[in-house]
Design a protein around this nucleic acid. Sequence first.
DNA 1: TCTGGGGTCCTAGGACCC
DNA 2: TCTGGGGTCCTAGGACCC
Length: 406
Amino acid sequence: MKRQILHVDVNNAFLSWSALDMLKNGSSIDIREIPAVIGGDETKRSGIVLAKSMKAKECGVKTAETIYQAKQKCPGLKIFPSNFKVYREYSNKLYYLLQEYTDKIERFSIDECFLDMSQYLMGDTLINKANEINKKVKRELGFTVNVGVAHNKLLAKMASDFTKPDRVHTLFENEIPDKMWTLPVSELFMLGKRTVPKLYNMQIKTIGDLAKTNKKILQDRFGKHGIMMWEYANGIDESEVKYIKEKPKGVGNSITLPEDVTNIEKLEEIVLALTEQVTYRLRKEKLFAKVVNVQLRNKNFVDTSHQKKLATATASTKEIFNVAKELLKQMYVKGTPIRLVGVRVDDLTDKEEIQISLFHDCHNEKQEKLDKTIDQLKEKYGYNSITRAGNMGVENLIKFRKDDVK
DNA sequence: TCTGGGGTCCTAGGACCC
DNA sequence: TCTGGGGTCCTAGGACCC
């Protein structure tokens, strides 16, 4: 029995959603109609393009390139900041609308969903449903989506990526040679900038070339990834629509600093502020972590990371910070200018494992109470209402995502 | 004033055990 | 006295996604 899968992809999501928000707040211009991008702040060294309008795209502006490059290509380009609180609201609106069609929805990202329509078609064709969704979203929510129609997730996703915006595309098995094999191999999902040049060297230039390459050769060269790319190129994907929300496997926060830092005390303060964010999120999800990881990026964009596995899972700010501080000390080469600092925790569990110790003291309990009190204050008065001593000033560096707080 | 921030999964090497 | 081999755990780094 063939599955009936749709992939819904919001066109220029961040830009469209910011446009709607601005219009709602009385703006006289629709930034979808002018050369515009949603991007970071160059003065904070986070100046990259997150989303672009069609007019900006016509100038050759690309997602993820620098604002500087975008401006060069497109003089007069308008730049607007991102607003994830707004994006989450629109993402939820889309999700609720889609729930009228099926409860088997996987939120693949903030602006993409997979729908498994297999049980709900009742004589209606999948294409009709796709068109209906496309029109209903535009009519009721005011932004456009592409909808990909296929019998598995990979093909539905490839289909929604064809021509944009506001389109419905099919990619059934018999359409693969015409619609997919003709595309450059770089267009295939999961083939990025590292793999594509290697394939080019092997004279594999289109998805069709890849599909016809011997699977064993790809396996020998790329391992599991090789098998996967061969299967994808041939339209093979048995993965399910994961409509049940999974707990996160890791939680992390990182920040690009407005200027390079070479002072370890300063780095420690930043690690503390990041640890507070991470553990706050951890406790909110009622999770405990067993692995602590610290990442540094130097001014030449070289990343290093160190991690440590703990004997017992914890969500305590103090415990995780102590480990993070040690990791930082281990890995930081004195004098290296640091551009980015990150703290993340992995190996998450639902339950706190109780450490069996003869010397189990009231230390942990005390610490837990403190964390809880701080969390409650943050819930009530906002994330920045309370900070640890020694953390003042650094807080202002860190871009807190308020939408995660409330 | 060129290069974000949040994730997931995989690989390879070393330690350690039997 | 020339060095097995399989298994697991841990760590660092890389690749990819949006």
